[in-house]
């Protein structure tokens, strides 16, 4: 089934960024992915990536760097935030589709 390949490729991406080797800890990456539980000022940058990415500024990165995060760590955590928010959209869409077709009838 084509969708299995698409969903498998998506799962492989999520699994890599959360569970593979990284410069940030797996816990930090999970928190960025979930947009939950990160300390200030990093939470501002990550929150914007997840919910209002056009409002991200140089100052958000500068503040996160000044609080001790390296560029490589921020590279990872921003990616985790973007992939995490998108994964929640995927889940919401697939759940709505499953509910809409729960009683059969759809092709």
């Amino acid at each position: 089934m084509p969708d299995n390949k698409k969903q498998a490729a998506h799962r492989a991406l999520v699994d890599r960024i959360l569970n593979g080797e990284g410069r940030s800890s797996a816990q930090q990456r999970a928190r960025a992915f979930g947009n939950d539980g990160l300390p200030p000022p990093l939470n501002t940058l990550i929150g914007k990536v997840a919910t209002r990415p056009t409002q991200v500024t140089e100052a958000d990165f500068a503040a996160a760097k000044a609080s001790g995060f390296s560029e490589d760590q921020l590279f990872e955590l921003v990616i985790c935030a973007a992939v995490g928010q998108s994964a929640r959209l995927y889940e919401a869409g697939l759940t709505a589709l499953a509910e809409a077709t729960a009683n059969g009838g759809a092709r």
């Binding site: 997840a50 998108s86 994964a87």
Partner: peptide
Amino acid sequence: AVCVAFNTTDRLADA
């Protein structure tokens, strides 16, 4: 799947 791919890329482009 298209929507998910581009919600990711859009966020990275702007961030």
